[in-house]
Simulated assay, not measured.
Amino acid sequence: MDNSLLSRRIKAIIIDFFILFILTIVLLVIILIVNKDKYDFIYCYALLMCIVYSTCFLKDIIGGQSLGKRIYKLQVKNDKGKVPPTKILILRNIFVFIYPIEIILCFVNNGRRLGDIILKTKVTDKDS
């Protein structure tokens, strides 16, 4: 992976996780406001985490692009150059929770994370 593509991929990841962070904060504030003795905070927090994790898993399902990838004109493709099926796009994002391994692999394995390697996908220019 050339440096320009890797740089854009890293910037796209930063945007995606910034959006996820903002979503988490907004939902947490809403839960704290609504939670006035009506609900147990633990259950509300569990719901929040389900929403956040689901967002993380589903971030690439529209055309193989998250918001960050759309901004930097990147796309997840399979080994045939096509956008993979939705279940593959979801499964490849499950590995993001072992992010230290994902980061190391991304730098040493031609820009491919563990999810990319196992599910035979790659992030590339949208138009290529």
Rank of each mutant, 00 (worst) to 15 (best):
M1W: 08
M1N: 10
M1P: 03
D2I: 07
L5Y: 03
L5K: 04
L6S: 07
S7G: 08
R9D: 09
I10H: 00
I15Q: 04
D16N: 00
F17M: 04
F17N: 14
I19C: 01
L20V: 12
L23M: 11
L23W: 15
T24P: 10
I25V: 10
I30Y: 07
L32E: 02
I33W: 13
K36D: 11
K36N: 13
D37R: 08
Y39F: 10
F41A: 02
C44K: 05
Y45L: 11
Y45I: 15
M49E: 04
M49S: 12
C50R: 15
C50I: 13
I51D: 05
I51S: 06
I51C: 03
V52A: 05
Y53N: 02
Y53R: 05
Y53D: 00
Y53P: 00
C56W: 10
C56V: 07
I61E: 04
G64W: 11
Q65E: 04
R70P: 04
I71L: 14
K77M: 15
N78G: 02
N78L: 00
K80S: 07
G81M: 03
P84R: 06
P84W: 03
P84G: 01
P85K: 08
P85T: 08
P85D: 08
R92A: 10
N93A: 02
N93C: 13
F95G: 02
F97D: 01
Y99M: 11
L105Q: 06
L105I: 08
L105H: 05
F107L: 09
N109G: 02
N110G: 09
R112F: 14
L114N: 07
L114P: 05
G115Q: 13
D116N: 13
K120C: 14
